[in-house]
Amino acid sequence: MTPEDIEHLAALLKARSGLILGADKTYLIESRLAPIARKEGFANVAGLLTSLRTRRDEKIIHAVVDAMTTNETFFFRDKTPFDQFKSDVLPVFAKSRVSGDIKVWCAACSTGQEPYSLAMMMDEARAQYPRMNLDITATDISERCLEKAQAGLYTQFEVQRGLPITMMVKNFEKVDEMWRISPKMRQAVKFRKMNLLDDLRGLGRLDVIYCRNVLIYFDLETKKRVLEQMATMLADDGYLFLGAAETVLGITDAFKPLSGMRGMYVKNMAANASLRPSMPLRAAGAA
């Protein structure tokens, strides 16, 4: 792998997905791209990288971007964001949303464990909130991940990570050596391909956004742009959930942390008033 090849790959990833390739990622590149190099008939990863520069084959570019994104996820990851939804978000919306509909967006949902966890959580809370309905849209840049999410088919290893056994028994059926989530849960989540660098407003007005462990892969400017666009889409009394190690501090003042609620953010109304007219977008030439 030449430094030029790696530099070109880094530029390509940033332009296509926002992903920042850190220094010294030779091992990551090698391990993630070796299967594609093999499949496409290149002698090695270096050959694949060189062809990325010279041939610009869209199919291969797609496969490379897909393989370089991190898809690590599991059911009820970190637990707290789901507990908070049940104990702090639902009671508030039970009063403020007369229709009972709450619109939730899981941004960068990977293989679907996060939206399905929310759907299962809501199903458990149904007795307490009979009129509430979660309208969950889950998006990701990776078609490979979305296919798996839509199929709702998980390995034994995946259903054991974070999923309480009673919920597994209730919501999954065994299909050979895999576990498939119930049609009821599959119907509760709409999956859609979406790049966070693009115009996100097609999702409409949202009550809750989960965007966990995604922004860490972006540079400061991209983080800011994505967060500020989310602020314009979120209802004024809505909630944003970020990953446990993430923050808006030092990035944008469109959101402010909710005191005592780790990972939960609300809109900073004063800042949003000035933000709205000049929302930065890729289409407007921001990057």
């Binding site: 034994q156 056994i165 597994m168 028994v169 059926e173």
Partner: peptide, 11 residues
């Protein structure tokens, strides 16, 4: 043992 009948019996 990883089938639902065993799991249900255990619970």
């Amino acid at each position: 043992e990883n089938d639902l009948s065993h799991i249900t019996e255990a619970l």
